[in-house]
């Protein structure tokens, strides 16, 4: 294993120390593993807290700042954080208007956030939780833990964050978060497995011409294994899966997300295909992100996340944002 780390056990704290040094806009509590805005809670604003396993950088800590999250709780690599972190984060960001927990639908994240929300409520905090579950690769929810929360988490954090910044009450911010999730879908493809530092070897083995279709964001295998093919076909496969679940129409926000080890050049190749695909369907990619935003360590591959926009969502997307991972308009 060749990784730019010091010691396997120090990966998460060392990452946090680096983020703290790089971004004075953040207040990083390395000991308790909480990343906050340095400016502290905004009085009267709904606080937004998210969190999850590490290894998805810049998600979530990279999205703490004006217009998005108030706090992030990073867990061990691919392991959800613990309730203590979420409770501390919730207390720290509560500006008097309540706190929204944005939770990716993974059993561990759900259970730990659930326990945290209960304990916060016991102490009198107002907490509402919203589950993100956008991954169309997981279909029959009675036979699964339900759809996974993946790329749409960024959309939810951005648009709910913008609404909170505009002073909306907790219920409205939570409703917006649910709306964004309802209108968002994702599909991911892996070209190679990633290596979890504590494990030291790739999570699975893929032959030189094999790919995994329908992956999540934890380096796990996908729903099926297939043969490698050109970008146009891979994009079509992902877009068809999304379109079959929620047909494209009108204005669409598109994220072509790299899983960590795919060159930006290739992501642009994919984005060109996405744009063409949407035109064919009579829809328009009016907003986009192309880059590494919700990653799986050093996995090669990509995921497409889309969100059907309307005027309100577009304006929330365009609202200024200033975080390490996303920044415009300010």
């Amino acid at each position: 294993m060749k990784k730019l780390i010091n010691a396997v056990g120090d990966v998460v704290p060392d990452t946090l120390r680096g983020m703290a040094a790089a971004h004075p806009s953040l207040r990083v509590d390395v000991e308790n593993r909480i990343v906050l805005r340095a400016a502290g809670p905004t009085p009267g604003k709904v606080g937004l807290v998210s969190g999850g396993g590490s290894g998805h950088e810049p998600l979530h800590a990279g999205f703490v700042g004006y217009g998005m999250l108030d706090a992030a709780c990073p867990g061990e690599v691919f392991t959800s954080p613990v309730p203590d972190q979420m409770i501390e984060a919730t207390k720290a960001v509560d500006g008097g208007a309540g706190v929204l927990h944005i939770v990716k639908n993974y059993t561990g994240d759900v259970l730990n956030f659930e326990m945290a929300a209960e304990l916060c409520a016991d102490e009198g905090a107002r907490v509402v939780s919203v589950l993100v579950d956008d991954d169309v690769a997981v279909q029959d929810s009675t036979y699964t833990a339900g759809r996974r929360g993946t790329g749409a988490t960024l959309f939810v954090e951005k648009m709910a964050g913008a609404l909170a910044e505009q002073g909306a009450p907790l219920e409205a911010v939570a409703a917006m978060a649910r709306t964004v999730d309802d209108r968002s879908r994702s599909f991911g493809v892996a070209f190679s497995a990633c290596t979890v530092p504590a494990v030291g070897k790739p999570t699975f083995d893929l032959g030189p011409t094999e790919i995994e279709l329908g992956i999540g964001i934890h380096g796990e295998p996908g729903r099926s294994r297939g043969g490698f093919r050109e970008a146009r076909e891979l994009v079509r496969l992902a877009m068809d899966a999304i379109d079959a679940d929620l047909p494209f129409s009108g204005d669409v926000l598109v994220m072509v997300n790299g899983m960590g080890a795919t060159p930006l050049m290739e992501l642009y190749v994919a984005y060109g295909e996405v744009d063409a695909y949407l035109r064919e369907k009579g829809a328009t990619a009016t907003r986009c992100l192309v880059g590494n935003y919700v990653t799986s360590l050093d996995m090669a591959g990509f995921a497409i996340t889309t969100c059907l926009l309307d005027a309100e969502l577009t304006s929330l997307w365009d609202h200024p944002v200033e975080t390490p991972g996303l920044r415009w308009g300010r």
């Binding site: 396993g53 867990g75 061990e76 392991t79 959800s80 954080p81 613990v82 309730p83 203590d84 993974y106 059993t107 561990g108 259970l111 730990n112 326990m115």
Partner: peptide, 12 residues
């Protein structure tokens, strides 16, 4: 275990 493990196995 709840405070230190994380994941699903911590709470369970």
């Amino acid at each position: 275990l709840i405070r230190k493990v994380g994941g699903a196995s911590g709470p369970l």
